[in-house]
Design a protein around this nucleic acid. Structure first.
Ligand code: FES
Ligand code: FES
Lengths: 141, 141
DNA sequence: AAAACTGATACTATATTAGTATCAATTAAA
DNA sequence: TTTAATTGATACTAATATAGTATCAGTTTT
């Protein structure tokens, strides 16, 4: 069971790069080479992040991408939702008979409780936090 | 992002059925029809659970499957590991330069911490617990 | 001997994830 | 003003994981 797919993984790395160079444009190409991310793949991810208002872009030579949203306001949960869909434990785990009785279904409760825990843990991790952690460890993203 | 796939979902349901009829054999066919699980699919899952010593089987007419391991000792984590592989957050999230420095990598730390939380939450949920919860809600699995 | 089962394994189908390619439009700079 | 560097949009392929089906041999009860 994989929690982060390449999508999210790459997206996080790219955002860290952008957050570190806040205020200036970074080209997809430069991010791709520096971070070993497949170029065309990365470009699609960046487009997606524009659509979600996390970053902005400038076309043409010397163009590129720049942070828009506050890095502290971007959580890993959000990125997972964008690139892997909402965290869901199971579509609906038990047979019709039981599922008719959603309110009482204790299994569903258990499952939903875990879902909550997972989400809230990931919500504690923001791009801003990751960046500061990296920096305080003496590493550039 | 799906946490439980059909594999684990079906396996949990089948185990609940077996745990409820502890001590007697249930055929794959009866479990399949009662719980709307594709018959051949279920049989493969049952075989896998035998290999992991969760259940035992008896061949021939009137044969079937029976609980072996204590239901309270079977956690959802175990089932996820069997059917979806070990819970892992990301193969290795950052570029070589940083990954060389595993000990210091704060991102990895964050990620591993969450991995722990997820696992421990799922470990709280056992087949035994689910069964008792179901029963106390007045439902048979 | 027949019927009801499991054991083992091979096969197909569908969905998700990962990665590549192409071309048009835009902008900066030569 | 042409050229090069860049994004926007989209279509395509490949690899892997998930889901489901089929088949046949062996075992046990009736
Ligand atoms: S799983 Fe559908 S209601 Fe319990
Ligand atoms: S991700 Fe590989 S060490 Fe940090």
């Amino acid at each position: 069971m994989k929690v982060l797919t390449k999508n999210s993984d790459y997206a996080i790395r790219a955002l860290l790069a952008l957050a570190a160079k806040k205020g200036s444009y970074l080209s997809a190409k430069s991010i791709a080479t520096e971070h070993d991310i497949p170029y065309q793949f990365l470009r699609r991810l960046l487009q997606e992040m524009i659509r979600h208002d996390l970053i902005v872009s400038k076309e043409g030579a010397q163009g590129g991408f720049m942070m828009k949203k506050d890095p502290d306001a971007i959580t890993v949960t959000q990125l997972i939702e964008i690139f892997q869909g909402k965290v869901q434990v199971s579509e609906c785990m038990f047979r019709k008979q039981i599922c008719g009785n959603r309110a009482r279904c204790v299994l569903r409760h258990e499952i939903m409780r875990i879902e909550q825990v997972v989400q809230s843990e990931f919500e504690k991790v923001t791009i801003g936090k990751l960046l500061r952690d990296l920096e305080s460890a003496g590493l550039k993203p």
